[in-house]
Amino acid sequence: MARLKFLCDADRCIECNACVTACKNENEVPWGINRRRVVTINDGKPGERSISMACMHCTDAPCAAVCPVSCFYGTADGLVLHDKDLCIGCGYCFYACPFGAPQYPRVGNFGGRGKMDKCTYCAGGPQADNSAVEYAQYGANRLAEGKLPLCAEMCSTKALLAGDGEIIAAIYKERVQRRGYGSGAWGWRTAYKEGLAV
């Protein structure tokens, strides 16, 4: 069984935000919620780098470890999804996540945040695949249609890769070998407990 992962090649990302826009449009993500975002470090300075970040669907996901209601579940493909009907919006996962992935729809009385929302790897939620209720709560389920997440499919420079971890790692290694440098598969050690040595 494939283990699905994300990989962002910071030497290729041009901060065009197409991944962010594709994600929002595909999943009808409301204003103010960012399942995916592009982070730029050293903006305007030599060595500037941008990286596209979302839920990395970690191995031994810290969000799942701290969730008091056990709303998270893993899929056979290695994805980390959650059940919004169980979520109580406590925000523990937000503090546990090393990537800032969990998002909350509102700021309310007594710290009420609403149900947590995050990247589903375009794989919907626990309801029946591609049903209207699934779309309303979680957005598209492209995976059930045999498609990869739209953010990576839309990436103009193919900086953002999605798919079987072994395949995308091989693509990245080939790139690094050919161009002679690579700033590393950012976040892989944190998310998947493994580096990507070439």
């Binding site: 901060e15 065009c16 935000n17 962010v20 826009t21 929002k24 103010g32």
Partner: peptide, 20 residues
Amino acid sequence: LVEYEGGGEETRSNKWLAEL
């Protein structure tokens, strides 16, 4: 800017781009 096009009315009217 990468998010907007020309005079921008079309793209500034697009909620996904306007948010950026």
